[in-house]
Structures are given as C-alpha cells and as structure tokens.
Design a protein around this nucleic acid. Structure first.
Lengths: 123, 123
DNA sequence: TATCGTTATATTTTTAAAAATATAACGGGC
DNA sequence: GCCCGTTATATTTTTAAAAATATAACGATA
C-alpha cells in the first residue's frame, strides 16, 4: 500500500492480511485445514475418536469428515477397523500422507504470500 | 504437486485451489469481500438500502457493516444523511475509495497466487 | 460367550446466525 | 404541516449449524 493510504484505519493492535485456503471440487470446498489436521491426528493416535477428542471435535463430525474424504477419493484415505483388539481403530493410507504433505507445502507458500502482503501493508 | 500425488482424488469437475482473504485486526476480520462490495454499491447508488438490495443483503446487516467500518476507521468511510430530499442517502469518502482500490489490487495478487497453485495442481 | 473400546448411525437438544418484521427519527420539498 | 424515502434501532421469527445423547455392530481376546 502506498503512503497516501496510511492512517485510514485505527490500529490498536497491528493490522494484518489473513486468509484461508482449501481445495475445491464442483464449487464446494472439501479439503481445508480441518480435514488435514484430522488426518494427522488419526495417524498419531490410530483412532478417529481419539483424534476428534484432541481436536475438540465431536466424534460424529470427525467420522463424517472421514467418510466424505473416503467418498471423494479414488482409494480410501482412512482405513477403519471395527471391533477386535482395543475395539478397533483407524490408520491412514500412503495417499493420505501424500495429500497431507502437499497441503503442508501449499500452506507454507500461502503463509509466505500473507506475510509478504502484511509486510507491505502498513495501514 | 509432483506426479506421484496424482489421481488420489476423484475429479468429476476440475479441482482447484481456492481461498478467501481479509484484513484482520486483533484477530478478527473486519474488511473482506463483503464490505468492499457494499462500499462500491453505496458509491454507485448513493444509498445504503439500495446497495443492500442489490447485494441481496438485509438493510440491517448492511447498516451494521457500515457502522462497524466507520467505528474502526479514524475518519468515516461512509457519510450518511438522514432525512431531506429522497429521504436521505449516503456517500463514501475518498478514504473509502482508497481502501477499495487497495483491496482490489490485493485481490488481484491473490487471484494470481490461486491461479498459479491451481495450474500446478493436477490432482 | 462376555468384555472392551472403537466404529457407525440416528435422534434430540442446544446454540448461533440469519432473516423478517415493525417503528421511530430525520429534513427537504410541496 | 404533511409526504416521502432513507437512516437508525429494537424485536421477533426462522433457519441452520453445532453439540449432546443414545445405541447397535463389530471382532480379537480372555
């Protein structure tokens, strides 16, 4: 922003450019920060319910996310086991790990974009 | 995305990277696409109510947005006149025009970022 | 076969956001 | 002084999202 645009807005704390990013199919988002973190937590804990708990998300919502992700992907991203030892559990596939990795890099580039815009802001 | 990450997701229509951008103060957004368009419509029509109508936004919400914008800015962005010919009306200030212009350019840079990411996607 | 914790699913309740409705204040022009 | 359309504000209603609650299926293990 050029000098003339300064001081238009109040700034008790610093003003910054921020935003959100997601993958979109058919105009609706299906792979944003939430699903990514959920996949990571499932990988960590081996359990959808425990992953949900750590994200302070209801199990229902977590399960719906997993279900939606598996439906949209050619091959499953999450493989659930029902019953058995510990009552069951879930693992994520290599493809899920690839998606997580891609999204991590994407977020890094986005963060760099936001930081650059914020740096050049000085409202 | 590298070749190995291809074909993980179904793609009836094309998959693209999309996102949203806003100015943030104290952790909460206060100047996103909505307010920008509202200011533009007010400039066009000279009326908050008419601007709201064109955006299919309730007058109440539009007025609250205007009020919030004027509160956060050092000098008003919108100058309302109550009563008088045509019952009143509103105009926007030069500072509002500056903000709109800045946001337009910001969106252009963001659109370029999204286009580049989408181009390099090929999920 | 009884137990366990998880997956899977339906139903209800709560909460929050949005929309709708109503009404007063305003001031120039007739 | 009345009319008009807009600003300004409160209240109610509707809608949608989120949360909470409940329960069955599952299968290895003991």
């Amino acid at each position: 922003m050029d000098q003339s645009t300064k001081h238009i807005l109040k700034r008790e704390p610093a003003i910054r450019v921020n935003g959100s990013l997601w993958l979109e199919s058919d105009g609706k988002r299906f792979f944003g920060p939430g699903p990514v973190e959920l996949l990571e937590r499932i990988a960590e804990t081996g359990s959808i319910s425990e992953a949900a708990k750590r994200m302070k998300m209801s199990y229902k919502k977590a399960w719906e996310l997993v279900s939606a992700l598996n439906e949209r992907s050619v091959n499953p991203l999450v493989v659930p086991r029902t019953g058995g030892e510990h009552g069951g559990g879930s693992t994520i596939t290599d493809e899920a790990r690839e998606l997580i990795d891609y999204h991590r890099h994407l977020r890094q580039r986005f963060a760099a974009f936001l930081a650059e815009e914020t740096k050049n802001l000085k409202l």
